[in-house]
Write a protein that binds this DNA or RNA. Structure first.
Lengths: 185, 185
DNA sequence: TAATTTGTTTAAAATATATTATATAGATTA
DNA sequence: TAATCTATATAATATATTTTAAACAAATTA
């Protein structure tokens, strides 16, 4: 291998490390991030064994990592006819990866808190309205206010998620330097 | 303690659990999230010992957890005159917590990748322009394109961060004080 | 001054997570 | 059919994180 080619690959490794580390905020480990990074810089679809060799992990770990990456749609399986092994490619659009992951995260947070509200609000309401215990009544009323604040927050969060998902956000924050102006999936 | 008061506290605990779990996406452990939850439902500032009793953790753990929460501005230290112990209160504005944390996360991701780009781009450029190795030259050119894509992504991310931080986002997604939220999945 | 209180650091223990070698299941080939 | 190949599940191991008890330092009190 020529020095130049070697140097290109070394620089790619630097980029892969940075990508892998930054992907930890997407809830995947750095080694799973490295799998993504290797696919990102590959111009051909890779098999589990190809990846295994490049990231120096066991095939089982690569298999698990790939599954994680497919769940968040950062990696896709592609078929190559005449080949028995699965092949994988990275979704190279960082923005799309970010939006997919982030919208999912927002919805998860919303559902968690929303569920707790559904579960607790009736209690607070009843005690606020009917309790003979003054302290309990006051506290229940305070908690109903907190819940209403939380509701407003979740509502805003969902409008943010919807705007990100629909692409409406780009009316507020346009993508620049792009050939195509609209974000579609 | 009356039954009603007891029930209010039990419902608060349900809310605290949900909040604690949802805070894991903010990079804090569920137990640190519980510390926040306890402070969230307290109408008076609490000391480390107060919190320790309520969450059943060691004082050292609470101390560490509080520091974490203060770093992301979700908890603030307040002084009570005549008292030697530190007292802490929760920032109750979820939206504010979200924005603070999220903007910081976006900037961290940007800095990580930006740094790697700064470090590697000169190599790619030089090889793309001067290499006698055809394969290396082609690869370097491809990588320069990937880097440009990454740059555009980071640029958009920073505009999003700025919009969230300045509050400009609320021109696009106004906060509203609706009493009923109609988001369903 | 010594004794006490408060918060933090440290090192060890407990817990959780990630990784691997091996076993298994399903598909394909001969 | 058996033999082979591929991906995944499982159980054991290795690694990383969290938590704690105990030591420590700084401030306060007596």
């Amino acid at each position: 291998m020529s020095d130049d080619l070697q140097n290109v690959h070394e620089s790619e490794d630097v980029m892969i490390s940075a990508i892998a580390q930054s992907m930890t905020v997407y809830g995947v480990s750095a080694s799973v991030g490295r799998i993504y990074g290797v696919l990102y810089f590959s111009d051909v679809p890779l098999t589990l064994d190809d990846i295994k060799d490049q990231v120096a992990m066991s095939k089982a770990s690569v298999s698990n990592g790939i599954r994680e990456l497919m769940e968040t749609e950062m990696v896709t399986k592609v078929w190559k006819k005449g080949e028995r092994k699965d092949h994988f490619i990275a979704e190279k659009d960082f923005l799309r990866n970010f939006l997919t992951f982030f919208v999912k995260t927002l919805r998860t947070e919303r559902n968690l808190i929303h569920k707790a509200i559904e579960q607790t609000e009736p209690t607070f309401t009843e005690i606020a309205e009917t309790s003979s215990d003054d302290e309990a009544e006051q506290l229940a009323n305070r908690d109903l206010e907190l819940i209403q604040d939380a509701r407003n927050y979740l509502d805003w969060l969902m409008r943010l998620a919807n705007s990100l998902e629909s692409g409406d956000i780009f009316n507020h924050l346009p993508k620049q330097d792009e050939k195509e102006s609209s974000y579609d999936e």
